[in-house]
Design a protein around this nucleic acid. Structure first.
Lengths: 194, 194
DNA sequence: TACAAATGAATGGCGATTCAGTCACTGCCC
DNA sequence: GGGCAGTGACTGAATCGCCATTCATTTGTA
């Protein structure tokens, strides 16, 4: 009976190895070495190398969304929820730099990844964002004349790009310090008051 | 002397092949077949398979930015320029679906692509966006209390995500019809007027 | 004839995956 | 207590398919 422990051990090693070398430049044997096991052992827990990547993403993304969901539930209104969502999105990535590297840069392998396997987890995050927006519209805090889906994608895209730039720029500044500005742009807009 | 023509022929074939199968599932011989030439011929024009991808991106991105730059120069003020930039960004992708597929989905191959080779072209696009924003601030049309870089990344990220969602959703709606909403979010913000 | 361009079969390397053994336990019987 | 299977996890060297890249040869043309 495979230890359920070793599954995690492999995932964690994979995050470090992928962050260091990239997915395609990482050998399965590198992951094994990093985890302190033989390469064959990996195949007792994962069918293929791809499956490691997909599983890794699913598990991390699921816990990311779950954590965010709980945290914003405690906020009093949609406005506070939105600000907290943005702040936490950045904080979590900042606190897990290897993970951030993998998610922002390595995990975009075209067909393999984006289509198919991981759609459900991304959708869950989109739903979380949407629900905050809906709540805000219902409470009269947010405008009701914008298409919900567009606002959702736009906000996600903005956060995602902030994170990607931060990673590609070698994490040379504090990502979470940009959270307020991002929130302000979305809430108050760019146009000067008339 | 290699015909300068064939270079383009190969690039165009590569776009179609990568769009269809993804970069890693495409053989160099597939590109050759699509271009109607022998696989060895490709190596008279490109050193490696990677170089095809990188060159492809550079050339397309450079002409994308050049075209956008000229188009918005004709607009009267920063506000009109911003709206036009967003509209054109979407229109161009919409009119080149194979290209869009490659850029949005295939061309994110971690280390290989994002870091290194293509940085200059992306930077040029960021500069273009920044220049419009600066102009708007100078003219008193845009708020001056937001960090320019953050607004730039946020806007780019928003457009990029809109495009990616559209591609992943099988292009089942008109991307360019969302341009006004995206512009409105950025300009007027999400918050209801007090 | 001479030179450049194009060809595509053959090569070579890489690394994911496999699988025949080894190892560590556990329980059982004498 | 101690030999003795039985069980299942673990190992890592060997395999094997794949495909980018090469290059001896052919084709075209000046």
């Amino acid at each position: 009976m495979p230890e359920p422990d070793k599954h995690q051990q492999i995932i964690d090693a994979a995050v470090r190895v992928f962050a260091r070398n990239g997915y395609y430049n990482s050998r399965v044997s590198d992951i094994a070495k990093e985890a302190g096991i033989a390469s064959g052992t990996i195949y007792l827990y994962f069918k293929t190398k791809d499956e490691i990547l997909v599983t890794l993403f699913r598990e991390k993304m699921a816990s990311f969304v779950a954590y965010l969901g709980e945290a914003i539930a405690r906020e009093p209104d949609a406005l506070a929820k939105l600000r907290r969502l943005i702040a936490l999105h950045f904080q979590i990535l900042e606190q897990n730099p290897d993970m951030a590297e993998v998610v922002q840069v390595e995990l975009r392998q075209g067909h393999k990844f984006f289509r198919g396997a991981s759609a459900a987890e991304v959708t869950a995050y989109f739903k979380l964002i949407s629900s905050v927006l809906e709540e805000g519209v219902a409470a009269g805090l947010f405008r009701d004349d914008l298409p919900l889906k567009t606002v959702t994608k736009t906000l996600f895209g903005a956060m995602d790009q902030m994170a990607t730039s931060w990673i590609l720029g070698k994490r040379s500044y504090k990502l979470s310090e940009t959270a307020d500005a991002v929130a302000d742009i979305f809430l108050k807009g760019l146009a000067a008051k008339p």
